[in-house]
């Protein structure tokens, strides 16, 4: 049996345990042996994106140390996975362990699509959802095709959502515009960050979405924080929560 190490970024651990639980559940149901090493915290992404490489290094080393013996490392967070896959080489000395981790670290939806090759799901979600395509998952991990490119449009995550019964995915005016989170950007430039998030929420609401769903909880957290402040009636879920059979109340 293949062993999976679960990577849960710290904010999901604290704010969105259900996204983590859903990841765990879906993997266990598929027959994987899943372990959640308790000494984990952060992949280093916020430091890398702020240019503070020296501070990211220790976290990256720790990440490798914790996860090096697993067959797969899986996270419900596309931007963390993109960090490991595309940034760690710039940060760490070349090693077999590093290459192994880079090759075997997946975002959960990506894993279900590429490795498990999920063909059917026995869950229903009778709601109208707006699908938020977070940038790092879209343009770095290539979970979909950016609207700028002249290529056949395809989204791995939309494919999974379409396996869910009774779900309706609404059409957005801007299908992949950034929500303005951008990690420390949200702190450095709060005015633009919030304006961008507001515009995203408005697009989803106008399209009739009851839920905004996505594969990067951090973007959803940012939009949820804005929606709360503005008393917007819209809910947020990680896609994996729906795939794992989230009920209405979660």
């Amino acid at each position: 049996m293949k062993r999976v190490g679960l990577f849960i970024p710290c904010y999901i651990d604290v704010f969105y345990p259900n996204a983590a639980l859903s990841t765990l559940k879906i993997l266990k149901d598929l027959g994987y042996e899943v372990d959640y090493p308790l000494n984990q915290s952060c992949c280093g992404q916020p430091f890398l994106n702020s240019g503070v490489f020296s501070e990211a290094k220790g976290l990256a080393e720790k990440f490798i140390e914790i996860f090096k013996d697993f067959d797969y490392v899986i996270a419900p967070s596309a931007s963390c996975v993109a960090t490991v896959r595309y940034r760690y080489r710039e940060l760490l000395k070349p090693s077999k362990e590093l290459e192994k981790i880079i090759a075997n670290t997946y975002e959960i939806c990506e894993f279900l699509h590429d490795v498990v090759k999920l063909k059917e799901l026995r869950v229903s979600f009778p709601h109208r959802v707006g699908f938020h395509q977070s940038c790092h998952g879209l343009r770095e991990l290539e979970l979909g095709v950016g609207s700028e490119l002249v290529k056949p449009q395809y989204s791995k995550v939309k494919y999974l959502l379409n396996l869910v019964k009774d779900i309706e995915i609404v059409d957005l005016k801007r299908p992949d515009e950034c929500c303005g989170f951008g990690g420390t950007f949200s702190i450095n430039e709060p005015e633009i960050s919030i304006a961008m998030g507001r515009d995203r929420i408005e697009d989803h609401k106008k399209a009739g979405a009851e839920y905004i769903v996505g594969y990067d909880m951090s973007c959803l957290m940012h939009m949820e924080a804005i929606a709360k402040r503005e008393n917007e009636d819209i809910k947020f879920l990680h896609v994996v929560e729906i795939l794992a059979g989230a009920d209405d109340e979660s």
Binding site: V14, P17, P190, A225, I226, R229
Partner: peptide
């Protein structure tokens, strides 16, 4: 986290 954003609220229990 800026005036236009509410601070995220911790869940009752963390995943951990």
């Amino acid at each position: 986290w800026g005036e236009g954003r509410a601070l995220p609220k911790p869940a009752k229990k963390s995943f951990r």
